[in-house]
Design a binder for these strands. Structure first.
Length: 457
RNA sequence: GGGGCCGUAGUGAACCGGUCAUCACGUCUCCCUGUCACGGAGAAGAUAGCGGGUUCGAUUCCCGUCGGCCCCGCCA
């Protein structure tokens, strides 16, 4: 018989259906047994009675009456009749709460071993290392899975908005011949007989593609070998990058602010249930305030009493306080900070023509941390060569990159959203590692690097 | 790199200078036809991360070590 998806059972009352999925929980009442069965569309209650046939069950223990062999995470095929529940037994908390399946037969297609922790509850109450040590299992939990449904919503809305803006989606290399951009530490890799590097961002490639497509976007991995052990840093991050030709500094800010708002809007509309599971507050986004770094630091001094006016960047505490201030004063969960010191920015950042000490750069802060950064770029070939030199690098290492500028590069700029950080902030996750399916950090590449956990059960 | 905190059954937690090391979930056995994180009765499961010290006595206090979490720094 054809498979019926669990959520579709709502339209099949009175019919015999075949569902496939995983056992989430079992509630045994002796002569009646309830199973919660989960597939990709949702959860449904299956009622097992004495008339239910069990197939693929190796033994029936004396004690085990109904479905004694069935345990959490078993993969099952269940044939049964969809019944409307009596009104007093309706469960309003689930989308299939008005129906249930009366099982005629249950077949175990794949038996699950005993679980290392209880997965039946509404939340997985695990320490982060345990959560990650058992990643393929913990990801199955509906609440954990929800994180990545939100991720999917963000990715697809980003893609959609960029397409509307006339951007061409591109895929760029993550292996580069030189550690070009300076700044962050890079991963060196063996490349045949040579040394190569994992890219810290798609930056240079997306710029090279501006004279080709004018507007491009890419969703890609970026690698940072910073020895940063914090709740908001990963060694491998997912970036959502855009680069636009024929734009101005102000226009760029208009664009990314509108993209950010579209993404948030989309997530709030499409992922209501997931957001609710996390108790995520509604995101507010009126007109997003824009401050220069120095203005922002002025706010920090006035409102929070910390004098960081000589710093080249905001501190993590500054970012948090500034966001609080933006919410209070401007009713916005976003705030843009502009004009970071030119000296603190990469070589391709355009200095402000009015005061070259500061640059035409911007960061977008969201609920306490930076989720985007970018700038107007230097598009003049000579100026770019000079900038590379003044950053202590050799233009020869940028031959292909510079070629793009030598032969006609329009005024251009771009920005990059950090996917994991956005997810973390939207859902209020405590640690960015929760926002990555398989997070890489200094101490972990799937398994912990320092420890032999093979002996684990 | 600097600082703070933590390490107790499979999981999550509690307690304590002398106990039989406690509880919840999970597991196992039994009871239960309406639960939905079902309920009830019982059982198994921990040489308290490891090493050393203090003490009559250490899981508890101290030191080291390994591991973890958090903050700062670093960080497009």
């Amino acid at each position: 018989m054809e498979r019926t998806l669990i959520l579709d059972c709502n339209d099949k009352v009175g019919e015999i259906v075949t569902i496939y999925g995983w056992i989430q929980t079992r509630r045994d009442h002796g002569k009646i047994l309830f199973l919660d069965v989960l597939d990709r569309t949702g959860l449904i209650q299956v009622v097992v009675s004495q008339d239910t046939h069990l197939r693929g069950v190796s033994k029936v223990t004396s004690s085990a009456h109904l479905g004694g062999e069935i345990s959490p995470q078993d993969v099952v095929c269940i044939i049964g009749k969809v019944n409307k529940r009596p009104t007093n037994l309706v469960n309003k908390n689930i989308p299939t709460g008005e129906i249930e399946i009366s099982a005629e037969s249950i077949e175990i297609l794949s038996k699950a071993s005993e679980l290392p922790f209880d997965m039946g509850g509404p939340t997985l109450n695990l320490e982060l290392p345990t959560l990650l040590d058992w990643r393929t299992l913990s990801l199955r939990h509906p609440k954990i899975k929800a994180i990545f449904k939100v991720q999917e919503a963000l990715l697809s809305s980003f893609r959609q908005v960029c397409q509307k803006l006339g951007c061409t989606e591109v895929v760029v290399p993550t292996i580069a011949a030189s550690s070009t951009e300076g700044g962050a530490e890079v991963f060196r890799i063996e490349y045949f007989e040579h040394k190569a590097f994992l890219t810290q961002s798609p930056q240079l490639y997306k710029q090279m593609l501006v004279p080709v497509f004018e507007r491009v976007f890419t969703i890609t991995k970026a690698y940072r070998a910073e020895p940063s052990v914090t709740t908001r840093h990963l060694a491998e991050v997912t970036q959502m990058d855009c680069e636009f030709g024929f734009t101005s500094f102000d226009e760029l800010m208009d664009i990314y602010e509108s993209i950010a708002i579209s993404m948030v809007e989309h997530v709030q509309n499409s992922s209501k249930l997931y957001l609710k599971e996390y108790g995520a507050e509604e995101i507010v986004y009126n007109k997003i305030p824009r401050l220069t770094l120095r203005e922002a630091q002025e706010v920090i001094l006035k409102e929070y009493g910390r004098d960081n006016k000589k710093e080249k960047d905001l501190t993590p505490q500054d970012e948090q306080d500034l966001c609080k201030w933006a919410k209070k004063k401007h009713n916005s969960d976003f705030i843009t900070v502009t004009h970071f010191p030119t000296a603190a920015k990469p070589f391709y950042t355009m200095p402000d023509p009015k005061n070259s000490e500061y640059s035409l750069s911007y960061d977008l802060l969201f609920k306490g941390i930076e989720i985007l950064s970018g700038s107007q770029r230097i598009n003049d070939y000579q100026q770019l060569v000079e900038s590379i030199k003044s950053h202590g690098m050799d233009p020869k290492d940028f031959e292909m990159y510079l070629m793009a500028f030598k032969y006609g590069m329009p005024p251009e700029g771009g920005f990059s959203f950090g996917l994991e950080r956005m997810i973390m902030q939207i859902l209020g996750l405590a640690n960015i590692r929760e926002a990555a399916l398989f997070p890489r950090d200094m101490e972990r590449v799937d398994i912990r690097l320092n420890v032999n956990i093979k002996n684990k059960k």
